[in-house]
């Protein structure tokens, strides 16, 4: 086993993939905790408990959440760049390969999820936490705290929506391959995927939660999105 582990092309890729999945479990586990558990609890608990959660619990959960996201992103970026380096060195096509189509489909959604964590969710949560600390100390409430909560929830729900297809396409890169050749419409596939995923992300930034407001809605939506991308892949490529 050590021979393989110490081989750069195999062992290094494996160790980074292992750390990538480990950090990803921390990140997405907490994403599901926020969306499926904490949000529902906050909706029905009293003001005192809500303040305690925001002051003491959410900051701890958010620390593991955002650093889990960061390490998942960095290890994933390394894996992509290292694999690209090897394939380019070997003269292999990066466009006409189901590995690259699948992994980049997953990575596109995962990168947006990472940006949503640091760019929207964490920034908005900081406003909400600061407001909870201030009001507990008897200071007036910050009127920006309520819209911050709405924006953080929408971005968080959008990440749940991306999560099921993201995982499907990440895993399928090495475990569900299919023929792709020069006659395949890989370019058209990417145009459709960029428009579809871009529209969902735009909605996550400036739109409305709509059907993904409920937990049932966002889980169903995530599986439906997976099926839609599978069908696009099947009939376009």
């Amino acid at each position: 086993m050590l021979d393989s582990l110490l081989d750069p092309a195999i062992g290094l890729m494996f160790v980074f993939r292992w750390l990538h999945v480990f950090a990803g479990i921390i990140w997405i586990g907490l994403l599901y905790y926020f969306n499926f558990v904490q949000g529902a609890f906050m909706a029905e608990t009293d003001a005192g408990a809500k303040s305690q959660v925001l002051q003491k619990l959410a900051p701890r959960a958010l620390w593991w959440f955002r650093y889990g996201a960061l390490y998942t992103f960095l290890t994933g970026l390394f894996l992509l760049m290292y694999r690209a380096h090897i394939d380019v060195k070997n003269g292999s096509s990066i466009m006409a390969s189901s590995y690259w189509i699948n992994i980049l489909t997953g990575a596109l959604m995962a990168t947006l999820m990472f940006l949503n964590v640091w760019g929207i969710i964490w920034r908005k949560q900081k406003v909400m936490i600061a407001n909870a600390v201030a009001t507990a100390a008897g200071q007036p409430a910050n009127p920006a705290a309520v819209p911050a909560g709405v924006a953080a929830t929408l971005a968080s729900r959008t990440n749940v929506l991306f999560s099921v297809p993201m995982l499907f396409f990440m895993l399928s890169a090495n475990h569900l391959n299919y023929p792709v050749d020069e006659s395949s419409n890989v370019g058209l596939y990417w145009v459709i995927i960029l428009v579809l995923v871009g529209a969902i992300e735009a909605n996550g930034i400036v739109g409305k939660a709509g059907p993904i407001t409920s937990i049932k809605g966002v889980i169903t939506g995530s599986f439906v999105l997976t099926a839609v991308i599978i069908l696009i892949n099947n009939f376009v490529i």
Partner: peptide
């Protein structure tokens, strides 16, 4: 998953 899409070339 391991060998190049073109079997004449080395894979990752």
């Amino acid at each position: 998953a391991c060998h190049a899409a073109d079997p004449k070339k080395d894979g990752a």
